[in-house]
Amino acid sequence: MTEADRAGDRIERTIEVQGIATHLFEAGPPTAPPLLYLHGTHLGNLWLDYHRLLAQQFHLFAPDIPGFGLSERPDWMHDMSDYVLYFRDLLAALGLERAALVGHSLGGWMAAEIAVWYPERVSRLVLSNAAGLRVKGVPMADIFALSPQRLLETCFENLMAAAPLIPREINTDYFVRLYAERTTLAALAWNPHYDPRLARRLQRLNCPTLIIWGARDRLIPAAYGEEWQRLIPGAQLVMLEGTGHMPMFEVCEQWVAHVSAFLQESQPQEVKPS
């Protein structure tokens, strides 16, 4: 730990993982079940209502994924497997034997990969509007072809909910940071923009899994939610009406209620070695 800052209900700090200074927020009762939240592209270094609400019931860890927010991405880190190994070490650095994983969009893809490779580390899995799969005939939007403005319009059904993402000042630094974050995403997901091997590997998942999706998602259409449910044994699917790619922004309480209820449903299943 290099730095810690307690602001109200949360701790903000930076920890070294694989030599990467990882910025994270931590909040909630230390005795509550641990929850690792993995954000989507451009959604690092945020502390918003969905974080606060989750932290009321869980011991929440919300790191900035390397290459986003305040966590730098070293040059060698440009493959999903690099991230999986990194998160394995992050869990260890946080002292978490097992945790619930909640991942949104790109973070959902990463959460699913972690659960495939380290099932013993994942008690429960929640994937919200997750990337990582391909559904033939139902293309995802080409995020790289969208201007910042068009990207917001595609992600949000209600642009008012995007307010926390609008910078105070739109200047060169802002555009350079945006470009750097897009570069991280491109390194991982330009071509292919999904993991061709993931679909088959999802059969291995043995933790309770919730797929939660905004029915109007125009970036990763609802068909992807259905595909995740089909591929993960026993997965539940919740389709939220009236929202799209950003349900935790637009219907925050409803989204948190579903996620919390699922995570608290019962004790985590025993993991059987496969």
Partner: peptide
Amino acid sequence: VPTEFFMPPGYMSL
């Protein structure tokens, strides 16, 4: 050409 096509991510150094 839209800027996004002209300057795809990573095509230029920071």
